[in-house]
């Protein structure tokens, strides 16, 4: 079994994973009073990067300036540290189950190049969408569902509903 676990094909039982994730989410609420997030860290980094490169531009833009004033608040840094933790945690799990490898994972029907272009496009769309919805799948949908917020549940249904439709259009990318 131990050997089997290290070949990269072993995943923990999804319900166990769900309970673990749920406990982490609960712990986050219990300790910090707010949920988990991921896209917020991207936003913080983009805002501070733009602010460093072109401070005048960032202060003139209504969106950046919204977050620049809050920059001193610990919560904007909070998500950056959390995401660093996510990468560390992912790396630990990858090491434990033997999944550390530089690869491009793609369907046999498409080339790696197509996959990378699609991934980049998907990332851009997700970046735009997460700003509209004020959070991504983790920040808005998952954390929102745990506290039964309207935005969380509506965003979750919008994400999975449209992803379901679009995934059949782009079926070739996957199976």
């Amino acid at each position: 079994m131990a050997k089997n676990k290290r070949d990269g094909t072993f995943y923990i039982n999804p319900y166990l994973g769900g309970v673990l994730l749920g406990l982490v989410l609960f712990g986050t609420y219990y300790i910090t009073g707010r949920g988990l997030g991921a896209s917020g860290a991207v936003k913080s980094s983009v805002v501070s990067a733009v602010h460093t490169i072109a401070p005048v531009h960032a202060e003139g833009n209504k969106y950046y300036s919204k977050f620049l004033s809050d920059d001193a608040s610990p919560m904007s840094n909070w998500l950056v540290f959390e995401v660093i933790g996510v990468i560390v945690g992912g790396f630990l799990s990858g090491t434990l189950y033997g999944r550390l490898k530089f690869i491009v994972e793609h369907s046999p029907k498409i080339t790696g190049r197509t996959r990378l272009i699609a991934a980049l496009a998907g990332g851009i769309l997700f970046g735009v969408g997460s700003q509209f919805a004020r959070g991504c799948t983790s920040g808005a949908a998952l954390s929102g569902m745990a506290v039964l917020s309207a935005s969380g549940i509506i965003t979750m249904m919008a994400i999975f509903g449209s992803a379901y439709l679009f995934s059949w259009i782009f079926k070739k990318l996957w199976i």
């Binding site: 699609a118 969408g129 509209f132 991504c136 808005a140 509506i154 994400i159 449209s162």
Partner: peptide, 15 residues
């Protein structure tokens, strides 16, 4: 935002 993210999800396969 959710619909745009869903589109991105179907193309990129991650969140």
């Amino acid at each position: 935002g959710g619909i745009i993210m869903g589109f991105g999800f179907a193309l990129g396969g991650f969140c």
